[in-house]
Nucleic acid binder design. Structure first.
Length: 208
DNA sequence: CACATGATCGCCT
DNA sequence: GGCGATCATGTGG
């Protein structure tokens, strides 16, 4: 088995007790960079055996669709794997990579415009290891997210949801995206966003 | 700290 | 048949 869809125990939290609420569909239909920025501070949550597990997102990347050489939907590529990217905003797109890892994206824009935001890192609730969710594959592993979750509607009251952040907005840092050096000019586009004050972001905190 | 490398396999050409 | 939206580990400075 490559990854058991079992969330890490320390990620348990209660969205209701924290007063968290879900954004409307329109939140996800906007410009992808805006969504990527606004997802910082929001909570990614997964229900397992009736309980909720999750973390506060601190790092995201925007993937801009057919014109973006780093995006799976580059040049309008449309295969069964990528199909969820073509749904309307608010769906989940999960893919399998490097033979052993999963990465999760939130689809943005209206149906047919295949853009998405990669969830790169989050902070768990109190008493979690600081870097448990620091990286797209680590985030999926710790929450137990796999390809079987790809295509889920985040607004369908299902097992994976996103809740709006509360309190002050994070200070946002911007750099090029990670791991897309093959994408030519697009590899240098400043589409990675992260919480400057979080110790849980993956990799570099500045350009270079 | 900064690289370099191996693991491992589904997907697309 | 080649390679990837990664990670952990190992080496060297």
């Amino acid at each position: 088995m490559i990854a058991k869809p079992v969330p890490h125990a320390c990620l348990r939290f209660d969205p209701k007790a924290r007063g968290l609420r879900e954004p409307p569909r329109s939140f996800y239909l906007r410009d992808t960079e805006v969504v990527a920025r606004n997802l910082l501070g929001a909570w990614i949550a997964r229900r397992w055996r009736g309980k909720w597990y999750g973390g506060r997102m601190v790092e995201t990347e925007a993937y801009l669709g057919p014109g973006d050489a780093a995006a799976h939907s580059w040049k309008g590529r449309r295969t069964p794997r990528v199909a969820p990217m073509y749904r309307d905003g608010g769906h989940l797109y999960v893919f399998f990579v490097y033979g052993m890892h999963y990465c999760a994206n939130v689809v943005t824009r209206p149906e047919g415009d295949a853009q998405a935001v990669l969830l790169r890192a989050a902070e768990g609730p109190d008493d979690c290891p600081e870097r448990l969710l620091s990286g797209p594959a680590k985030l999926c592993a710790a929450l137990g997210i796999t390809v079987s979750d790809s295509g889920l509607d985040l607004l369908a009251a299902g097992r994976i949801r996103i809740f709006r952040g509360r309190g002050k907005r994070p200070r946002v840092g911007v750099t090029p995206r990670i791991g897309v050096d093959y994408a030519g000019e697009a590899a240098r586009w400043p589409l990675r966003f992260f919480d400057l004050d979080s110790p849980s972001v993956s990799g570099r905190k500045s350009v270079n």
